[in-house]
């Protein structure tokens, strides 16, 4: 379970898997962080909570990772760890609540690796194979 970066000519591709959808979403967040940042140390300075709703599971995952992108590049806030993640299927689709711990970007300890322009839909398909949820995520850099 977890994630594994794979070769991609121009961008960054990562295969993510989890025993549950929650695990898959959590691993995806950490894969995003590893692609974007080189973090030598962490501090849980502040927390932020986000809520997303979508009829589509892939859109939901992209909404979440895009939020991490926005928080980093526009708000200067680095996500450090996940406190809670609640994901449920509803009558109208999916509902996600996530609480993250993080800190203000500090260029001494948080080195940018790549500028992730966006989290793409390319080849993204969340599937359950032999009791494991899997997806591929391509980050445009």
């Amino acid at each position: 379970m977890g994630y594994r970066f794979i070769e991609h000519t121009a961008d960054i591709a990562v295969e993510v898997e989890g025993e549950s959808l929650n695990d898959l979403f959590i691993s995806s967040c950490y894969a995003w962080r590893e692609a974007a940042m080189d973090i030598s140390s962490f501090q849980k300075e502040s927390s932020k909570k986000f809520i997303f709703n979508s009829t589509n599971l892939e859109v939901l995952l992209i909404e979440l990772l895009s939020e991490l992108n926005f928080q980093l590049y526009s708000k200067g806030w680095v996500f450090v760890t996940i406190q809670n993640l609640f994901l449920e299927e509803t009558d109208s689709g999916y509902h996600l609540e996530i609480e993250l711990f993080g800190q203000k970007h500090n260029s001494e300890i948080h080195k940018f690796k790549e500028e992730i322009k966006a989290v793409t839909f390319h080849q993204m398909k969340i599937e359950k194979v032999n009791n494991t949820y899997k997806t591929l995520i391509v980050f445009d850099i």
Binding site: N56, V59, E63, Y73, F121, D140
Partner: peptide, 16 residues
């Protein structure tokens, strides 16, 4: 970032 966000915003709409 402005352009990336425009693409991102509209892809989500158009996927639906």
């Amino acid at each position: 970032g402005l352009g990336y966000q425009v693409c991102d915003d509209y892809l989500k709409v158009l996927v639906q």
